[in-house]
Amino acid sequence: MKVYYFASLKEALKIPSEEIILSADMTVEQLRKKLVDKHGKCHFPGNILCAVNQEIANDEVVVSDSDEVAFYPPVTGG
Score class of each variant (00 low, 15 high):
residue 75 V to M: 13
residue 61 V to G: 02
residue 14 K to Y: 08
residue 58 N to F: 04
residue 27 T to R: 04
residue 34 K to T: 06
residue 33 K to V: 15
residue 27 T to V: 05
residue 70 A to T: 04
residue 53 N to Y: 02
residue 29 E to D: 11
residue 32 R to T: 13
residue 62 V to W: 02
residue 47 N to C: 12
residue 52 V to N: 03
residue 30 Q to P: 10
residue 6 F to H: 03
residue 18 E to W: 03
residue 47 N to A: 14
residue 62 V to T: 05
residue 21 I to M: 11
residue 4 Y to I: 09
residue 26 M to W: 05
residue 57 A to Y: 01
residue 67 D to C: 04
residue 43 H to W: 01
residue 29 E to M: 10
residue 6 F to M: 00
residue 72 Y to N: 08
residue 2 K to E: 07
residue 42 C to A: 15
residue 66 S to C: 12
residue 68 E to F: 10
residue 45 P to S: 09
residue 22 L to C: 04
residue 74 P to M: 15
residue 49 L to W: 05
residue 10 K to R: 13
residue 17 S to M: 14
residue 29 E to Q: 13
residue 59 D to H: 09
residue 38 K to W: 00
residue 21 I to C: 10
residue 1 M to V: 06
residue 49 L to I: 06
residue 39 H to C: 11
residue 75 V to I: 15
residue 42 C to K: 15
residue 21 I to H: 10
residue 44 F to T: 01
residue 11 E to M: 03
residue 56 I to T: 14
residue 67 D to S: 07
residue 34 K to D: 15
residue 69 V to G: 01
residue 54 Q to R: 13
residue 9 L to V: 04
residue 73 P to Y: 06
residue 12 A to D: 02
residue 73 P to W: 05
residue 40 G to N: 10
residue 55 E to S: 15
residue 34 K to R: 15
residue 60 E to R: 11
residue 36 V to H: 01
residue 38 K to Q: 07
residue 39 H to N: 12
residue 16 P to A: 09
residue 6 F to V: 05
residue 11 E to V: 08
residue 60 E to F: 06
residue 41 K to D: 07
residue 24 A to Y: 14
residue 43 H to C: 06
residue 66 S to N: 15
residue 48 I to T: 10
residue 73 P to M: 12
residue 34 K to E: 11
residue 4 Y to T: 04
residue 33 K to H: 13
residue 34 K to M: 12
residue 54 Q to G: 06
residue 18 E to T: 00
residue 44 F to G: 00
residue 7 A to C: 09
residue 4 Y to K: 10
residue 13 L to E: 01
residue 32 R to N: 08
residue 16 P to T: 10
residue 66 S to W: 07
residue 60 E to Q: 04
residue 62 V to A: 01
residue 44 F to M: 03
residue 71 F to L: 07
residue 30 Q to E: 15
residue 49 L to K: 12
residue 56 I to W: 15
residue 52 V to D: 02
residue 65 D to G: 09
residue 60 E to V: 07
residue 6 F to L: 08
residue 74 P to W: 10
residue 22 L to P: 03
residue 61 V to T: 05
residue 25 D to Y: 11
residue 71 F to K: 03
residue 68 E to M: 12
residue 78 G to T: 13
residue 31 L to D: 01
residue 75 V to R: 04
residue 24 A to N: 11
residue 57 A to W: 08
residue 75 V to N: 11
residue 7 A to G: 01
